[in-house]
Design a protein around this nucleic acid. Structure first.
Lengths: 115, 115
DNA sequence: CTAACATCTGAATAGTTGCTCATATATTCA
DNA sequence: TGAATATATGAGCAACTATTCAGATGTTAG
């Protein structure tokens, strides 16, 4: 292992800490099922768990697990209404990221970002 | 299992196919090491592998593996220069996503997106 | 041609993650 | 109170992924 040359003038990157902070929101959208869940909430507004599952096409237990993870990450907020628990998106950044991606990778009507 | 109620008026989501397409770019940025690699290339411009590794703070073999994956996904382009192989970012969408995230989650000088 | 260098590639491994199943908790209704 | 509904939660498992190590490939210099 000889020292690397560093051709370019001082191309400093980001430290491991910032990389972890930056990659966290991406990992939340990296799973197709979880992305469908977030998308359903962005597009459809506040919903109870079973409606999220029905809209996203995911199992109810799996949906609950994913919503718990999203809630722990601060992406969604939950509120009890009777025996149901309603979820809504609480993170504008995630909404923006999803909108940008949808706009560029689906080339259709984008959620949240436009208008 | 009784049928779900669907309170909201027709909140249709996206199908599994679109979800997979949408989540793919996010998964590429979901790993801290790979994100540092992309970030290094976005910030520092074209570089050879060992310089990418040095800038990103990742092992050389690991960097090579990740660059191969990024190349397969069309995120980076490679070109041989003598015995070195230089990589550069080839996907404007990834650049934009990374820029948006950096702007909102690091609140500092953002790469690519601004100016 | 040989040695050194830069990168690639495959196998093995360890860590992570998302799903399912079963069960627990909480709420409403009769 | 007891049954039904809605969701949460934990354990177990299967699939995926990133890293390391060893060796292969291609390139330049002597």
């Amino acid at each position: 292992m000889t020292e690397p040359h560093l051709h370019s003038p001082l191309p400093r990157g980001i430290d491991a800490d910032d990389a972890a902070r930056l990659s966290a929101p991406f990992s939340l959208l990296a799973d197709p099922s979880r992305l469908r869940i977030v998308y359903a909430l962005v597009e459809g507004g506040p919903m109870c768990v079973s409606d999220v599952a029905a809209t996203a096409g995911t199992g109810e237990s799996a949906t609950s697990h994913q919503l718990a993870k999203l809630r722990a990450a601060g992406v969604v907020r939950s509120e009890r209404r009777g025996r149901e628990i309603w979820y809504q998106v609480a993170d504008a950044h995630i909404r923006l990221l999803l909108g940008v991606a949808a706009e560029h990778y689906l080339a259709e009507n984008t959620p949240g970002a436009a208008s």
